[in-house]
């Protein structure tokens, strides 16, 4: 049993859970993820990146957006409740070294798993610039934490309700021109990561992306998470989740992510009807 010690609502539909999971907290490194299954026979297994961990307290933190049926059901859990199954840490940890100048680009809830990577990069002696973006102000998370790492933090929203109006690739391109980073890491919606890769490619800057694909077991068994990287099929769960962003076949990945979209749409709608919660909220 994995008890929820703290539940925070970061925005209308973004939640942060601090969960008791001493074994995972002890082993976990930046870039790794867990698979959460609420319990019983019928709940789905949901892969979620570990946003932070405290090995002394034996806790891990997950941040998720209630975007589908499974995450909505997770969002309905409260402090003190126990999640029956949390498996991890999964995936290979981020390779951290002194690259020189690094830019971290986070979009939406991707900002949460980006934080421990940014922190580790800074601790390794890298110069750091951070860009975070979201659709609107209410979906911007962990701004203060990120600003503590980079006082010149760049915030971007689609509608301009917070920071610059626009998308993250614009300040990224400017930094590529003016600051000449040696390394870029990006976590967020697939479309955003694709365009970050396209932005840095002409400058030949090594760029890493953390992928979030369809997954069941997380141990290499199902192969549902496979992506094409440099023309080779890779499993995100055992070979990833991070890959060279310039080698990923982004279009295929986006198509594969929508495999169950009609089911998901219907289940999501049903979930809102059953719980009586308005769309866009959880």
């Amino acid at each position: 049993m994995y008890r929820i010690l703290k539940k925070e609502k970061l925005s209308k539909e973004v939640f942060r859970f601090t969960i008791e999971a001493p074994m995972i907290a002890r082993e976990r490194k930046a870039g790794q993820f867990v698979i959460v299954q609420k319990g019983g026979d019928f709940e789905e297994r949901i892969p979620l990146t570990i946003a932070d961990a405290d090995s002394e307290k034996g806790t891990i933190t997950i941040v998720f957006q209630a975007i589908g049926e499974g995450t909505h059901r997770l969002a309905m859990m409260n402090e003190g409740d126990a999640i029956e199954n949390v498996l991890g840490p999964l995936g290979r940890p981020t390779h951290i070294e002194k690259f020189g100048r690094c830019v971290c680009v986070g979009g939406g809830i991707g900002v949460a798993p980006l934080y421990p990577i940014a922190k580790a990069l800074k601790e390794a002696g890298n110069e750091l610039r951070i860009i975070i973006g979201a659709r609107n102000e209410s979906l911007i998370i962990e701004e203060d934490e990120m600003r503590a790492l980079d006082p010149e933090l760049i915030v971007v929203t689609d509608d301009g309700t917070r920071g610059r109006k626009g998308v993250v690739t614009e300040p990224l391109k400017e930094l590529c021109e003016s600051w000449k980073p040696d390394f870029v890491v990006t976590i967020g919606p697939t479309i955003m990561m694709k365009f970050c890769a396209l932005t840095t490619a002409p400058y030949g800057i090594k760029t890493l992306a953390s992928l979030n694909t369809i997954m069941i077991d997380g141990t290499g068994m199902c192969g549902g998470c496979r992506v094409s990287v440099g023309g080779e099929t890779k499993f995100v769960c055992v070979d990833g989740p991070e890959f060279d962003a310039h080698e990923v076949d982004w279009d295929n990945m986006m198509i594969r992510q929508r495999t169950y979209s009609s089911y998901e749409k219907e289940a999501h709608h049903r979930c809102h009807l059953e719980t009586g919660i308005k769309e866009g909220e959880a």
């Binding site: 069941i216 077991d217 290499g220 068994m221 199902c222 549902g224 496979r226 992506v227 198509i255 929508r258």
Partner: peptide, 24 residues
């Protein structure tokens, strides 16, 4: 526990699954 694929073109299309995934 690691499913093999054929290594033929089109294997990453939507609707291609390993038997492991389908059965799991």
């Amino acid at each position: 526990g690691l499913p093999k694929f054929m290594g033929i073109p089109g294997e990453n299309l939507v609707g291609v699954l390993s038997a492991n995934e389908y059965l799991t």
